[in-house]
C-alpha cells in the first residue's frame, strides 16, 4: 500500500517568533526554517510502515513556494521514496491545503494519508480533518499508536480524558501526536541520496483547485506582557507572599 505524508515548512520550533513593531506581520527575517515537528513524526511513521513491509511506497507532499522543496528533501532523506510539491505563492489556508491534498490523493490513491496534528506556526489543527472530510475518509487524529489491520487501521488517540482507540476503514487519514514515535536523524549518505529522488511539481490548476481566501490577517500584536516577578528566599517567604500579597491561598 501507498502512504502519503504531508510535510509543512515552518519556523524552527526553538525560535521565539515576534510581531513586527508596526503590527503588520510576524518577523521571519533570517529565522531558521524546518519541517514541522509533527510532520517529521508523520514521515517517521510512514517509513517504519515501509520498513515493516506494510507500506510499498512513501510519498512526501508539501504545499508552498519553491522553498518547501527543502523540507520535501528532508523527508526523502528520512526515507520517503519520492516527493510532490504543490506550488503556491507562500502559505495558503488549511481549507485550501486540504483541497490541494485531496487532489493529490485522487491522483495517487494512497491507502493511508499521514499529517501532523498541528502546524506550529499557525496552530490551526485543521488540515487533516478537512482532508478526511473532503475525501470521505475516516480520521484518526492526535495518534499515539497506529496499527494496520487488514483493510482497517486501528488508531490510539490522545484525547482530553486519556486515550481513545478507533478502527477506521482504509483509506484513512491519520494525524500524529508527539508520542507516536521518535524520528530518526538523516544520515549524510541518505541526504546525498535524497537529492536524486524524484520530485514532481504540480500547480493548483493541475489538481483542479482554485486558491481562495476566507480569512485575512489584519494585524498582529505581542501577547499581554507579564509583570516581572521576584525571587523568594525560602518556602516560608513563598507561603507568606501567596497568602498575604497575592491572596491566592488562605
Amino acid at each position: 500500500m501507498k502512504v502519503l505524508v504531508a510535510v509543512k515548512r515552518v519556523v524552527d520550533y526553538n525560535v521565539k517568533v515576534r510581531a513586527k513593531a508596526d503590527g503588520s506581520d510576524v518577523d521571519l527575517n533570517n529565522v531558521k526554517m524546518a519541517i514541522n515537528p509533527f510532520c517529521e513524526i508523520g514521515v517517521e511513521e510512514a517509513v517504519r510502515l515501509k520498513e515493516a513491509g506494510t507500506a510499498s511506497e512513501v510519498i512526501a507532499v508539501s504545499v508552498g513556494d519553491k522553498s518547501c522543496q527543502e523540507q520535501i528533501r528532508t523527508a526523502l532523506a528520512l526515507g520517503a521514496d519520492r516527493g510532490i510539491q504543490v506550488e503556491t505563492d507562500g502559505n495558503v489556508e488549511p481549507l485550501v491545503v486540504a483541497k490541494l491534498l485531496k487532489g493529490v490523493v485522487d491522483k495517487e490513491e494512497p491507502a493511508l494519508v499521514i499529517l501532523g496534528k498541528q502546524s506550529i506556526d499557525g496552530d490551526n489543527n485543521q488540515t487533516g480533518q478537512m482532508l478526511a472530510a473532503l475525501a470521505g475518509m475516516g480520521q484518526g487524529t492526535f495518534a499515539s499508536e497506529v496499527a494496520i489491520d487488514g483493510d482497517k487501521v486501528k488508531v490510539t488517540r490522545e484525547v482530553d480524558g486519556g486515550l481513545q482507540t478507533v478502527s477506521l476503514n482504509l483509506p484513512a487519514v491519520v494525524t500524529t501526536d508527539l508520542r507516536l514515535n521518535e524520528p530518526r536523524y538523516a544520515s549524510l549518505p541518505n541526504i546525498m541520496k535524497a537529492k536524486k529522488k524524484p520530485l514532481d511539481v504540480y500547480t493548483p490548476e493541475d489538481l483542479g483547485v482554485t486558491v481562495t481566501t476566507h480569512l485575512t490577517q489584519l494585524k498582529v500584536k505581542p501577547p499581554a506582557e507579564r509583570q516581572a516577578g521576584i525571587k523568594v528566599e525560602s518556602v516560608d517567604e513563598l507561603v507568606d507572599k501567596l497568602k498575604n500579597e497575592a491572596k491566592v491561598i488562605s
Partner: peptide, 18 residues
C-alpha cells in the same frame, strides 16, 4: 473579526472572516 494566538502564543493575530 477575531483574535487568536499563533506561534505558541508568542503572537496574537487579528483575523477577519469573509
Amino acid at each position: 473579526t477575531f483574535e487568536r494566538p499563533i506561534y505558541a502564543g508568542n503572537v496574537i493575530a487579528t483575523v477577519q472572516s469573509a
